[in-house]
Design a protein around this nucleic acid. Structure first.
Lengths: 183, 183
DNA sequence: TGTACATCAGTGAACGCGCGTTCACTGATGTAC
DNA sequence: TGTACATCAGTGAACGCGCGTTCACTGATGTAC
Protein backbone atom coordinates (compact mmCIF):
# COMPACT_ATOMS: atom_id res chain seq x y z
CA UNK A 1 0.00 0.00 0.00
CA UNK A 2 1.31 3.43 -0.93
CA UNK A 3 1.38 6.65 1.03
CA UNK A 4 -1.67 7.88 -0.76
CA UNK A 5 -4.66 5.59 -0.55
CA UNK A 6 -7.18 6.21 -3.26
CA UNK A 7 -9.75 7.55 -0.84
CA UNK A 8 -8.55 10.34 1.34
CA UNK A 9 -11.10 9.69 4.04
CA UNK A 10 -11.48 13.18 5.44
CA UNK A 11 -10.98 15.36 2.43
CA UNK A 12 -13.61 17.88 3.38
CA UNK A 13 -11.93 18.73 6.65
CA UNK A 14 -8.46 18.66 5.08
CA UNK A 15 -9.62 20.91 2.25
CA UNK A 16 -10.79 23.61 4.64
CA UNK A 17 -7.55 23.45 6.60
CA UNK A 18 -5.42 23.60 3.47
CA UNK A 19 -7.52 26.40 2.05
CA UNK A 20 -6.98 28.45 5.20
CA UNK A 21 -3.25 27.79 5.07
CA UNK A 22 -3.12 28.70 1.41
CA UNK A 23 -4.96 31.96 2.04
CA UNK A 24 -2.64 32.93 4.88
CA UNK A 25 0.59 32.02 3.15
CA UNK A 26 -0.50 33.05 -0.30
CA UNK A 27 -1.51 36.56 0.62
CA UNK A 28 -5.26 36.64 0.72
CA UNK A 29 -8.28 35.02 -0.83
CA UNK A 30 -7.50 36.73 -4.09
CA UNK A 31 -4.62 34.40 -4.75
CA UNK A 32 -6.37 31.25 -3.58
CA UNK A 33 -6.66 28.48 -6.13
CA UNK A 34 -8.16 25.04 -6.02
CA UNK A 35 -4.97 23.73 -7.55
CA UNK A 36 -2.95 25.09 -4.64
CA UNK A 37 -5.30 23.50 -2.12
CA UNK A 38 -5.09 20.24 -4.04
CA UNK A 39 -1.30 20.32 -3.89
CA UNK A 40 -1.37 20.92 -0.13
CA UNK A 41 -3.90 18.18 0.50
CA UNK A 42 -2.13 15.73 -1.79
CA UNK A 43 -5.15 15.36 -3.97
CA UNK A 44 -6.27 16.18 -7.48
CA UNK A 45 -7.63 19.69 -7.77
CA UNK A 46 -10.76 18.26 -9.35
CA UNK A 47 -11.55 16.26 -6.21
CA UNK A 48 -13.26 19.18 -4.49
CA UNK A 49 -16.14 19.08 -6.89
CA UNK A 50 -17.62 16.19 -4.89
CA UNK A 51 -17.52 18.03 -1.58
CA UNK A 52 -18.14 21.66 -2.40
CA UNK A 53 -19.47 21.81 -5.93
CA UNK A 54 -17.33 24.74 -6.90
CA UNK A 55 -14.76 27.19 -5.64
CA UNK A 56 -17.37 29.59 -4.19
CA UNK A 57 -18.89 26.55 -2.50
CA UNK A 58 -15.61 25.82 -0.76
CA UNK A 59 -15.25 29.42 0.39
CA UNK A 60 -18.82 29.39 1.67
CA UNK A 61 -18.03 26.30 3.74
CA UNK A 62 -14.94 28.04 5.12
CA UNK A 63 -16.94 31.12 6.10
CA UNK A 64 -19.59 28.96 7.74
CA UNK A 65 -16.95 27.15 9.78
CA UNK A 66 -15.57 30.56 10.75
CA UNK A 67 -18.90 31.81 12.10
CA UNK A 68 -19.34 28.61 14.06
CA UNK A 69 -15.94 28.91 15.69
CA UNK A 70 -16.46 32.60 16.38
CA UNK A 71 -19.87 31.97 17.94
CA UNK A 72 -18.40 29.36 20.22
CA UNK A 73 -15.44 31.53 21.21
CA UNK A 74 -17.63 34.50 22.08
CA UNK A 75 -20.23 32.39 23.86
CA UNK A 76 -17.57 30.79 26.03
CA UNK A 77 -16.60 34.24 27.31
CA UNK A 78 -20.13 35.60 27.31
CA UNK A 79 -20.16 36.19 31.06
CA UNK A 80 -17.54 38.92 30.73
CA UNK A 81 -17.99 41.63 28.12
CA UNK A 82 -14.32 42.55 27.98
CA UNK A 83 -13.24 38.94 27.48
CA UNK A 84 -15.94 38.41 24.87
CA UNK A 85 -14.47 41.32 22.92
CA UNK A 86 -10.96 39.98 23.31
CA UNK A 87 -12.20 36.58 22.12
CA UNK A 88 -13.54 38.23 18.95
CA UNK A 89 -10.14 39.77 18.24
CA UNK A 90 -8.33 36.60 19.19
CA UNK A 91 -10.47 34.66 16.75
CA UNK A 92 -9.63 37.06 13.94
CA UNK A 93 -5.90 36.86 14.62
CA UNK A 94 -5.89 33.08 15.08
CA UNK A 95 -8.02 32.46 11.98
CA UNK A 96 -7.25 35.30 9.59
CA UNK A 97 -8.28 33.28 6.56
CA UNK A 98 -11.72 32.54 7.97
CA UNK A 99 -12.06 36.13 9.11
CA UNK A 100 -11.25 37.43 5.66
CA UNK A 101 -13.69 35.13 3.93
CA UNK A 102 -16.42 35.97 6.45
CA UNK A 103 -16.23 39.71 5.93
CA UNK A 104 -15.26 40.16 2.33
CA UNK A 105 -18.36 40.79 0.26
CA UNK A 106 -18.98 38.92 -2.93
CA UNK A 107 -16.82 35.85 -2.55
CA UNK A 108 -19.32 33.65 -0.80
CA UNK A 109 -22.61 32.07 -1.92
CA UNK A 110 -24.95 34.58 -0.30
CA UNK A 111 -28.00 32.35 -0.48
CA UNK A 112 -26.44 29.49 1.46
CA UNK A 113 -28.70 28.66 4.38
CA UNK A 114 -26.07 27.04 6.60
CA UNK A 115 -23.91 30.12 6.20
CA UNK A 116 -26.82 32.39 7.10
CA UNK A 117 -27.70 30.46 10.23
CA UNK A 118 -24.09 30.23 11.43
CA UNK A 119 -23.77 33.97 10.95
CA UNK A 120 -26.97 34.50 12.88
CA UNK A 121 -25.68 32.40 15.76
CA UNK A 122 -22.44 34.39 15.91
CA UNK A 123 -24.32 37.66 15.85
CA UNK A 124 -26.56 36.46 18.64
CA UNK A 125 -23.63 35.32 20.75
CA UNK A 126 -22.07 38.75 20.55
CA UNK A 127 -25.32 40.57 21.24
CA UNK A 128 -25.98 38.37 24.26
CA UNK A 129 -22.70 39.41 25.81
CA UNK A 130 -23.81 43.05 25.89
CA UNK A 131 -25.93 44.39 28.74
CA UNK A 132 -29.60 44.48 27.86
CA UNK A 133 -29.75 48.16 28.68
CA UNK A 134 -27.13 49.05 26.06
CA UNK A 135 -28.40 51.46 23.40
CA UNK A 136 -28.23 50.74 19.69
CA UNK A 137 -25.38 53.23 19.39
CA UNK A 138 -23.43 51.53 22.14
CA UNK A 139 -23.95 48.08 20.65
CA UNK A 140 -22.76 49.30 17.29
CA UNK A 141 -19.80 51.02 18.91
CA UNK A 142 -18.85 47.80 20.67
CA UNK A 143 -18.93 45.77 17.49
CA UNK A 144 -17.07 48.47 15.59
CA UNK A 145 -14.30 48.73 18.12
CA UNK A 146 -13.47 45.04 18.28
CA UNK A 147 -13.92 44.57 14.56
CA UNK A 148 -11.84 47.66 13.82
CA UNK A 149 -9.05 46.62 16.15
CA UNK A 150 -8.97 43.16 14.61
CA UNK A 151 -8.92 44.55 11.08
CA UNK A 152 -6.20 47.09 11.82
CA UNK A 153 -4.13 44.44 13.55
CA UNK A 154 -4.43 42.10 10.59
CA UNK A 155 -3.54 44.86 8.16
CA UNK A 156 -0.23 45.14 9.97
CA UNK A 157 -0.26 48.81 10.92
CA UNK A 158 -0.58 48.22 14.66
CA UNK A 159 1.89 45.43 15.03
CA UNK A 160 5.03 47.54 15.27
CA UNK A 161 4.10 49.69 18.23
CA UNK A 162 2.05 47.27 20.28
CA UNK A 163 4.03 44.06 20.46
CA UNK A 164 3.06 40.74 18.99
CA UNK A 165 0.15 39.61 21.15
CA UNK A 166 -3.13 41.06 19.95
CA UNK A 167 -5.02 40.08 23.10
CA UNK A 168 -2.58 41.88 25.33
CA UNK A 169 -2.70 44.97 23.15
CA UNK A 170 -6.48 44.93 22.82
CA UNK A 171 -7.53 44.25 26.41
CA UNK A 172 -6.81 47.72 27.87
CA UNK A 173 -8.50 49.36 24.89
CA UNK A 174 -11.64 47.30 25.36
CA UNK A 175 -11.53 47.66 29.13
CA UNK A 176 -11.49 51.41 28.91
CA UNK A 177 -14.27 51.42 26.36
CA UNK A 178 -16.43 49.18 28.53
CA UNK A 179 -15.72 51.24 31.62
CA UNK A 180 -16.64 54.46 29.84
CA UNK A 181 -19.64 53.26 27.88
CA UNK A 182 -21.40 50.62 29.93
CA UNK A 183 -22.05 52.50 33.14
CA UNK B 1 -8.80 63.85 -36.07
CA UNK B 2 -10.27 60.76 -34.44
CA UNK B 3 -11.82 60.29 -31.05
CA UNK B 4 -8.62 58.79 -29.74
CA UNK B 5 -5.54 60.93 -30.22
CA UNK B 6 -2.32 58.98 -29.97
CA UNK B 7 -1.34 60.64 -26.73
CA UNK B 8 -3.92 60.45 -24.02
CA UNK B 9 -2.67 63.51 -22.21
CA UNK B 10 -3.66 62.63 -18.68
CA UNK B 11 -3.33 58.89 -18.59
CA UNK B 12 -1.95 58.72 -15.10
CA UNK B 13 -4.99 60.41 -13.59
CA UNK B 14 -7.38 58.47 -15.82
CA UNK B 15 -5.70 55.20 -14.91
CA UNK B 16 -6.23 55.76 -11.21
CA UNK B 17 -9.87 56.66 -11.75
CA UNK B 18 -10.50 53.68 -13.97
CA UNK B 19 -8.67 51.37 -11.59
CA UNK B 20 -10.89 52.53 -8.75
CA UNK B 21 -13.99 52.00 -10.85
CA UNK B 22 -12.81 48.57 -11.90
CA UNK B 23 -12.16 47.56 -8.30
CA UNK B 24 -15.59 48.71 -7.17
CA UNK B 25 -17.53 47.18 -10.04
CA UNK B 26 -15.37 44.11 -10.39
CA UNK B 27 -15.64 43.02 -6.79
CA UNK B 28 -12.37 43.87 -5.15
CA UNK B 29 -8.71 44.28 -5.89
CA UNK B 30 -8.43 40.54 -6.39
CA UNK B 31 -10.21 40.75 -9.72
CA UNK B 32 -8.46 43.89 -10.91
CA UNK B 33 -6.54 43.59 -14.16
CA UNK B 34 -4.49 46.02 -16.17
CA UNK B 35 -6.40 44.89 -19.21
CA UNK B 36 -9.68 45.93 -17.62
CA UNK B 37 -8.28 49.33 -16.72
CA UNK B 38 -6.97 49.70 -20.25
CA UNK B 39 -10.40 48.95 -21.68
CA UNK B 40 -12.02 51.53 -19.42
CA UNK B 41 -9.43 54.19 -20.21
CA UNK B 42 -9.52 53.45 -23.95
CA UNK B 43 -5.87 52.63 -24.00
CA UNK B 44 -3.61 49.64 -24.55
CA UNK B 45 -3.06 47.67 -21.40
CA UNK B 46 0.67 47.95 -21.95
CA UNK B 47 0.52 51.73 -21.70
CA UNK B 48 0.67 51.75 -17.91
CA UNK B 49 4.25 50.55 -17.93
CA UNK B 50 5.36 54.11 -18.62
CA UNK B 51 3.51 55.61 -15.70
CA UNK B 52 3.59 52.99 -12.99
CA UNK B 53 6.20 50.43 -13.99
CA UNK B 54 4.05 47.49 -13.03
CA UNK B 55 0.72 46.49 -11.57
CA UNK B 56 1.90 46.80 -7.95
CA UNK B 57 3.22 50.22 -8.91
CA UNK B 58 -0.23 51.29 -10.01
CA UNK B 59 -1.81 50.01 -6.81
CA UNK B 60 0.82 51.81 -4.77
CA UNK B 61 -0.05 55.05 -6.53
CA UNK B 62 -3.72 54.44 -5.81
CA UNK B 63 -3.05 53.87 -2.12
CA UNK B 64 -0.90 56.99 -1.95
CA UNK B 65 -3.68 59.05 -3.51
CA UNK B 66 -6.05 57.54 -0.95
CA UNK B 67 -3.94 58.59 2.02
CA UNK B 68 -3.65 62.08 0.60
CA UNK B 69 -7.39 62.45 0.19
CA UNK B 70 -8.04 60.96 3.63
CA UNK B 71 -5.51 63.29 5.26
CA UNK B 72 -7.19 66.29 3.66
CA UNK B 73 -10.68 65.15 4.60
CA UNK B 74 -9.77 64.59 8.23
CA UNK B 75 -7.73 67.78 8.47
CA UNK B 76 -10.63 69.82 7.14
CA UNK B 77 -12.77 68.60 10.03
CA UNK B 78 -9.93 68.59 12.54
CA UNK B 79 -11.59 71.19 14.77
CA UNK B 80 -14.38 68.78 15.68
CA UNK B 81 -13.50 65.25 16.75
CA UNK B 82 -16.90 63.80 15.90
CA UNK B 83 -16.83 65.26 12.40
CA UNK B 84 -13.26 64.12 11.88
CA UNK B 85 -14.40 60.59 12.65
CA UNK B 86 -17.37 60.90 10.35
CA UNK B 87 -15.02 62.19 7.63
CA UNK B 88 -12.91 59.05 8.00
CA UNK B 89 -15.96 56.86 7.48
CA UNK B 90 -17.25 59.05 4.69
CA UNK B 91 -13.93 58.73 2.92
CA UNK B 92 -14.05 54.95 3.15
CA UNK B 93 -17.58 54.79 1.78
CA UNK B 94 -16.94 57.33 -0.97
CA UNK B 95 -13.65 55.73 -2.03
CA UNK B 96 -13.97 52.04 -1.24
CA UNK B 97 -11.36 51.06 -3.79
CA UNK B 98 -8.75 53.37 -2.30
CA UNK B 99 -9.71 52.22 1.18
CA UNK B 100 -9.28 48.60 0.26
CA UNK B 101 -5.91 49.12 -1.34
CA UNK B 102 -4.73 51.21 1.62
CA UNK B 103 -5.50 48.59 4.22
CA UNK B 104 -4.96 45.28 2.51
CA UNK B 105 -1.53 43.97 3.31
CA UNK B 106 0.73 42.69 0.60
CA UNK B 107 -0.64 44.31 -2.51
CA UNK B 108 1.34 47.51 -2.39
CA UNK B 109 5.06 48.26 -2.78
CA UNK B 110 5.90 48.58 0.90
CA UNK B 111 9.17 50.41 0.32
CA UNK B 112 7.61 53.26 -1.65
CA UNK B 113 8.59 56.52 0.00
CA UNK B 114 5.72 58.62 -1.32
CA UNK B 115 3.30 56.05 0.03
CA UNK B 116 4.99 56.07 3.41
CA UNK B 117 4.91 59.84 3.71
CA UNK B 118 1.30 60.12 2.62
CA UNK B 119 0.38 57.50 5.18
CA UNK B 120 2.30 59.40 7.82
CA UNK B 121 0.42 62.59 6.98
CA UNK B 122 -2.94 60.85 7.26
CA UNK B 123 -2.00 59.32 10.57
CA UNK B 124 -0.88 62.70 11.85
CA UNK B 125 -4.09 64.37 10.72
CA UNK B 126 -6.14 61.89 12.67
CA UNK B 127 -3.96 62.09 15.76
CA UNK B 128 -4.13 65.86 15.71
CA UNK B 129 -7.90 65.76 15.88
CA UNK B 130 -7.75 63.96 19.22
CA UNK B 131 -7.35 65.90 22.47
CA UNK B 132 -3.76 65.97 23.63
CA UNK B 133 -4.78 64.50 26.96
CA UNK B 134 -6.21 61.35 25.37
CA UNK B 135 -4.53 58.16 26.54
CA UNK B 136 -2.99 55.63 24.18
CA UNK B 137 -5.93 53.30 24.81
CA UNK B 138 -8.41 56.03 23.96
CA UNK B 139 -6.58 56.97 20.77
CA UNK B 140 -6.51 53.37 19.68
CA UNK B 141 -10.17 52.97 20.57
CA UNK B 142 -11.04 56.01 18.47
CA UNK B 143 -9.20 54.71 15.44
CA UNK B 144 -10.65 51.23 15.91
CA UNK B 145 -14.20 52.48 16.16
CA UNK B 146 -14.18 54.56 12.99
CA UNK B 147 -12.16 52.00 11.08
CA UNK B 148 -14.38 49.18 12.29
CA UNK B 149 -17.58 51.00 11.43
CA UNK B 150 -16.25 51.77 7.95
CA UNK B 151 -15.14 48.20 7.40
CA UNK B 152 -18.40 46.71 8.60
CA UNK B 153 -20.36 49.14 6.46
CA UNK B 154 -18.37 48.24 3.38
CA UNK B 155 -18.76 44.53 4.05
CA UNK B 156 -22.49 45.06 3.76
CA UNK B 157 -23.66 43.69 7.09
CA UNK B 158 -24.78 47.02 8.49
CA UNK B 159 -26.49 48.39 5.47
CA UNK B 160 -29.85 46.68 5.91
CA UNK B 161 -30.73 47.97 9.36
CA UNK B 162 -29.23 51.41 9.27
CA UNK B 163 -30.34 52.98 6.02
CA UNK B 164 -28.14 53.97 3.13
CA UNK B 165 -26.21 56.96 4.46
CA UNK B 166 -23.16 55.89 6.40
CA UNK B 167 -22.55 59.35 7.86
CA UNK B 168 -26.03 59.52 9.29
CA UNK B 169 -25.70 56.05 10.76
CA UNK B 170 -22.21 56.65 12.12
CA UNK B 171 -22.61 60.08 13.69
CA UNK B 172 -24.62 59.04 16.79
CA UNK B 173 -22.25 56.14 17.39
CA UNK B 174 -19.21 58.39 17.30
CA UNK B 175 -20.97 61.11 19.29
CA UNK B 176 -21.74 58.75 22.10
CA UNK B 177 -18.21 57.37 22.06
CA UNK B 178 -16.71 60.85 22.22
CA UNK B 179 -19.09 61.93 24.98
CA UNK B 180 -18.23 58.85 27.04
CA UNK B 181 -14.51 58.69 26.43
CA UNK B 182 -13.24 62.22 26.04
CA UNK B 183 -14.41 63.79 29.28
C1' DT C 1 -20.31 -16.90 2.85
C1' DG C 2 -20.13 -15.25 -1.66
C1' DT C 3 -21.27 -12.51 -5.59
C1' DA C 4 -23.30 -8.93 -8.43
C1' DC C 5 -24.13 -4.36 -8.71
C1' DA C 6 -24.80 0.47 -7.45
C1' DT C 7 -22.77 4.28 -5.48
C1' DC C 8 -19.21 7.05 -3.83
C1' DA C 9 -14.55 9.39 -4.04
C1' DG C 10 -10.81 10.70 -6.56
C1' DT C 11 -7.90 10.83 -11.20
C1' DG C 12 -5.62 13.11 -14.79
C1' DA C 13 -5.89 14.98 -19.23
C1' DA C 14 -8.11 18.41 -21.92
C1' DC C 15 -10.66 22.74 -22.75
C1' DG C 16 -10.71 27.57 -23.29
C1' DC C 17 -9.70 31.79 -20.92
C1' DG C 18 -7.64 36.04 -19.10
C1' DC C 19 -3.70 37.44 -17.15
C1' DG C 20 1.15 40.54 -16.66
C1' DT C 21 5.14 41.31 -18.98
C1' DT C 22 8.10 41.90 -22.89
C1' DC C 23 9.21 43.48 -27.41
C1' DA C 24 10.07 46.00 -31.56
C1' DC C 25 7.46 49.47 -33.32
C1' DT C 26 5.31 54.15 -34.35
C1' DG C 27 3.27 58.56 -33.70
C1' DA C 28 3.83 62.93 -31.30
C1' DT C 29 6.40 66.37 -28.91
C1' DG C 30 10.10 69.25 -27.68
C1' DT C 31 14.71 71.22 -28.18
C1' DA C 32 19.29 72.68 -30.27
C1' DC C 33 21.17 75.08 -33.70
C1' DT D 1 11.87 80.18 -39.57
C1' DG D 2 13.25 75.67 -40.56
C1' DT D 3 15.31 71.22 -39.85
C1' DA D 4 17.47 67.32 -37.55
C1' DC D 5 17.30 64.58 -33.80
C1' DA D 6 16.32 62.85 -29.18
C1' DT D 7 12.87 61.71 -26.10
C1' DC D 8 8.44 60.63 -24.60
C1' DA D 9 3.88 58.10 -24.78
C1' DG D 10 1.27 54.57 -26.49
C1' DT D 11 0.56 50.23 -29.75
C1' DG D 12 -0.50 45.59 -30.60
C1' DA D 13 1.16 41.09 -31.15
C1' DA D 14 3.46 37.45 -28.82
C1' DC D 15 5.10 34.84 -24.79
C1' DG D 16 4.28 31.58 -21.23
C1' DC D 17 1.50 30.78 -17.25
C1' DG D 18 -1.99 29.26 -13.91
C1' DC D 19 -6.57 29.12 -13.51
C1' DG D 20 -11.76 26.62 -12.86
C1' DT D 21 -14.47 23.48 -14.96
C1' DT D 22 -15.61 19.42 -17.56
C1' DC D 23 -15.07 14.73 -18.91
C1' DA D 24 -14.66 9.84 -19.26
C1' DC D 25 -12.39 7.01 -16.29
C1' DT D 26 -11.06 3.95 -12.26
C1' DG D 27 -10.47 2.31 -7.65
C1' DA D 28 -12.88 1.49 -3.34
C1' DT D 29 -16.86 0.75 -0.58
C1' DG D 30 -21.23 -0.78 0.76
C1' DT D 31 -25.50 -3.33 0.21
C1' DA D 32 -29.04 -6.76 -1.51
C1' DC D 33 -29.81 -11.27 -2.06
Amino acid sequence: MGDHPYHHGALRKAALECAAAAIIEGGGVSALSLRDIGRRAGVSHAAFKHHFGSKPGLLTALATEGYEVLAKAVTDEGHDLVEAGVAYIQFAVAHPAHFEVMFRPGIVQADDSQLASARERASLAFTSALPEAASAATRLAAWSIVHGFATLWLSGGLHDDLGSDASVAARPVIMQFVRDSMT
